[in-house]
Amino acid sequence: MTPASIETSPTSAQNGNVAARAIDALKIYGEGDTAVTALAGVTVDFTKGQFTAIMGPSGSGKSTLMHCLAGLDSLTSGSVWIEGIDLTTLKERQLTQLRRDRVGFVFQAFNLVPTLSAEENMVLPLSLAGGSVDKAWFDQVVQTVGLGNRLSHRPSELSGGQQQRVAVARALASKPAIIFADEPTGNLDSRSSTEILNFMRQAVDDYEQTIVMVTHDPFSASFADRVLVLADGDIVHEIGSPTTESIIDFMKTFGD
């Protein structure tokens, strides 16, 4: 079953309220017979201060969408924007700078550089940019993340949940326009997962951080303000103010 495509407020790029946006994003891997369409012309806005979860079966294009939005991958056609900047016009070096300065990342695992301490990992994007650390903001993030006494530890000395918290803190530390989280709780037990998700929720509520999270897990997605469901490279559904139950219910009908 294929529900009608969701129109998500196609406003102008000058709209100051949009952190990131994709317009007619098309991504095709390969050529000829072996060509695979990963994104079939997605148009979507991510409003500032909003927590969006992206769900969908494997191969639905959710990771590709995130990679393209973050400037890690390029589109075949269409455009992606972050804070009014068209990423498709940027050169490799400018893209790198954009990632460093305006984008935060949280991956499922291997988020941290093993040779650097928790604190060094947190300030890594700032250090790479050569910018100075906003001490007050950094302290606030550290306090929120609750790692005060473990800042000098290496990642190998932290638990999986602590590592992910450091990763989220790192994403927050540079006050990016948008944070992309790729299954940030995929490797964690439910208690640690809840901690991380609460932490991300808090970042959105208290600091108006924009977060886009890819996940498989309805419980995780329920922390978001809205859930976008992808299938075959396009957004097929949007769930506003989701709960675990409403997501599971939709997924049941969707799976049929």
Binding site: L72, T96, L98, R100, F110, L124, P125, L128
Partner: peptide, 16 residues
């Protein structure tokens, strides 16, 4: 490889 990918994603430039 993974770690380098992470650094690049974090915004480390090629020359860095």
């Amino acid at each position: 490889t993974r770690e380098l990918g992470l650094l690049r994603a974090m915004g480390m430039t090629r020359s860095q």
